[in-house]
């Protein structure tokens, strides 16, 4: 009984804290979807350990404390979509879509594939090119490998973002003259829900630079 009460109090406190926090990288930015499965925290794109591959990282649901991390869940009605522009017109020529399936608790990857339409509305394109069982909190990372060499991971990770966001807010509010030395990482000790997709560059088939952005889309 006492434990239940404590747990309840802790949950309320956590809700108050996360509800009041202003997120960064992309967290401060989504009044419509704050703290939902479609709320992006960060996107990273970089050359893989194998220089013939590129890595695409999508992080969501930021500032999750360790005590709440086991409860983080992907959503069957959400698609995480990496958009790739190869021609410089900022319109997607290829998409890599990440779609959770509760059947088997898997993250499934579609693409890279040319989408049948561009813009804010999407449907799943083509067929699954790689999939992986979602890694549970505290378990070793599972890697799925598709036939075309695509690798995928899905599950909770440490938030790789670092920034003294609290001090930045104080500066904007006029209560601090500048940054502190040393600064204090507002994101230290917190987790995100990640999807990591490693793709052979040959499947993107671009020459030189591409433009990439991440979208989250909800079933309509």
């Amino acid at each position: 009984m006492k434990r239940k009460k404590l747990l309840f109090a802790a949950t309320i406190a956590a809700a108050l804290v996360t509800g009041g926090i202003i997120y960064a990288a992309d967290h401060i930015d989504t009044p419509a979807v704050t703290n939902q499965t479609t709320d992006i925290t960060d996107v990273y794109v970089f050359r893989a350990q194998d220089p013939n591959n590129l890595v695409f990282v999508a992080n969501t649901q930021g500032l999750t404390i360790p005590g709440n991390t086991a409860a983080l869940k992907f959503d069957e009605n959400t698609v995480l979509e990496f958009n790739i522009d190869k021609t410089g017109d900022n319109k997607e020529d290829l998409v890599i879509q990440c779609k959770y399936s509760a059947d088997g608790n898997k993250m499934q990857i579609y693409g890279p594939v040319a989408p049948s339409e561009t813009g804010t509305r999407s449907k799943l394109e083509g067929s699954v090119t790689a999939e992986v069982a979602v890694t549970a909190y505290g378990s070793a990372a599972a890697t799925g490998t598709g036939g075309s060499g695509i690798k995928v991971f899905a599950g909770p990770r440490d938030d790789p973002f670092f920034f003294d966001l609290d001090r930045y807010k104080a500066i904007l509010a006029g209560t601090a003259p500048g940054f502190a030395t040393p600064g204090n990482d507002t994101f230290k000790g917190t987790n995100v829900l990640s999807v990591v997709v490693e793709v052979p560059k040959s499947l993107i088939a671009a020459t030189g630079a591409i433009n990439v952005w991440l979208e989250t889309k909800k079933k309509i």
Partner: peptide, 18 residues
């Protein structure tokens, strides 16, 4: 019937919207 998904969030460079 085709299932469609509608955009809710996007980002590329860090902290731009923020």
């Amino acid at each position: 019937a085709t299932v469609y998904y509608e955009q809710q969030d996007q980002m590329a460079r860090p902290a731009i919207n923020t």
